[in-house]
Design a binder for these strands. Sequence first.
RNA 1: CGGGAUGUAGCGCAGCCCGGUAGCGCGCUUCGUUCGGGACGAAGAGGCCGGAGGUUCGAAUCCUCUCAUCCCGACCA
Length: 491
Amino acid sequence: MAKILSSKEESYSQWYNDLVVKADLAENSAVRGCMVIKPYGYAIWEKIRDTLDGMFKETGHSNAYFPIFIPKSFFSREAEHVEGFAKECAVVTHYRLKQSDDQTGLVVDPDARLEEELIVRPTSETIIWDTYRGWIQSYRDLPILVNQWANVVRWEMRTRLFLRTAEFLWQEGHTAHATREEAVEETRQMLGIYADFAEKWMAIPVLKGVKTESEKFAGAEDTYCIEALMQDGKALQAGTSHFLGQNFAKAFDVKFLNRQNQLEYVWATSWGVSTRLMGALIMAHSDEHGLVLPPRLAPIQVVIVPIFRNEEQFSAIRAVAEKMVKDFKACGIRIKFDDRDTHKPGYKFTEHEFRGVPLRIALGPKDLENHTVELARRDTLTKEILPMEGITGHIEQLLETIQDNLLAKAKAFREANIHKVNSWNEFKETLENKGGFLYAHWDGTPETEEKIKAETKATIRLIPLEGDPEDGVCVYSGKPSKQRVVFARAY
RNA sequence: CGGGAUGUAGCGCAGCCCGGUAGCGCGCUUCGUUCGGGACGAAGAGGCCGGAGGUUCGAAUCCUCUCAUCCCGACCA
């Protein structure tokens, strides 16, 4: 079995970059910080998108679309929001190019300056709340449950394929409610949907919690998040859901008349996941043979590789393979018959393995003779010979087994990397030698949080939602604490 | 914006010190043998050596200036 990747232990980031490129998921583009998502990578994203889209609709949300450009003035309406995003905005200042005076190329036409500059959206709260003002007069207009699938731009200094790119794809839900309680409930519901999706589809267990004041979304009252643990012991924020209070309603003057005929500001939420999930997916399961995909998200779940010496054998195999493809498709299994005659079987084995196809069927003359197939599992790298009869049902089952196995493996890994630490020395030592999630007492002050970050690069990933209250003392300051929070180094 | 490095064939690199016909591996094309874990042989195609200036009879190589990219830090889903 071919090992094409550098070892994860040697250089995890090298391993990750090579994998993304070699598995045909994405590549760097001519534009700094922006990626090209290749067809195979995009197919995975489409599965993620379509599944989540269905879950949003199940819970009463509808899709809509708002402009990519946001008037600069909108941003300054919400003080925290503008402060959070101002440093990373792309700005449109002109609307026309012209031939340069010396005729050597195009220049920006100075006469075509925009009266008001436009921001390329880093997120859409402002434009959406400006729009909602016109949609909402009465409690009868509420709630508004809208989501949009879009691209956004955040001018990042350092970028990495999928994990942090200047432009990325995401969904952003923006809801408006008549009461605080309802908005909080929505925020938590969507967090639950993200957590559910991560576990059931991506086979990634996540922690749910609330961000600290310094880590929360600019403009939110509370930011909820799911955090996943990557194989190198670093945490990755996989999704966020914000309770925005009445901040944006106040900034954009969005009021409604309640049942008591009183004017009130509207309550808001927003929530999102991005193409970053692709990074999580890759780093959660893959190995030195390449990508490992959970069957539920794999664009191709089963591939059939024919083995033949001559045209006669090939056509005999083709007949059997095409019948199998038909049977599998009838069961809703995504199967592909790799009938290219331009590559040899060994090459195809490696290639599909690299791209994370969960199951591979090899079909050769011996199999036709014995009515068998050779079945190889990507997650365990094991092979077995099975009778052709009943193969469809067997594989249907096996795909579920693989899905479960990946989640179980990821869970076991996470359990092994959760550490309760009780002293500052223990904190530093564990972080350095083991990584993972550190459960530790914290005195609740941003100052301590900041100092810990400066000294160790570890941040508070979240305050657990279902944390057991437990009296203790802050690992750093020794001041009293009521609950452990989760620290980690993060992406 | 600080610190470090690199620009030579589609990709990965050597050549540069010591100036003199531009090379290697992979990939690509054709033919033949192969085909149950990235096949082998033979023959081919492909490059103003990032750009501009200079030194020289002669520059990938020396000098100056530029542009770009990557890595490491400060910011972030």
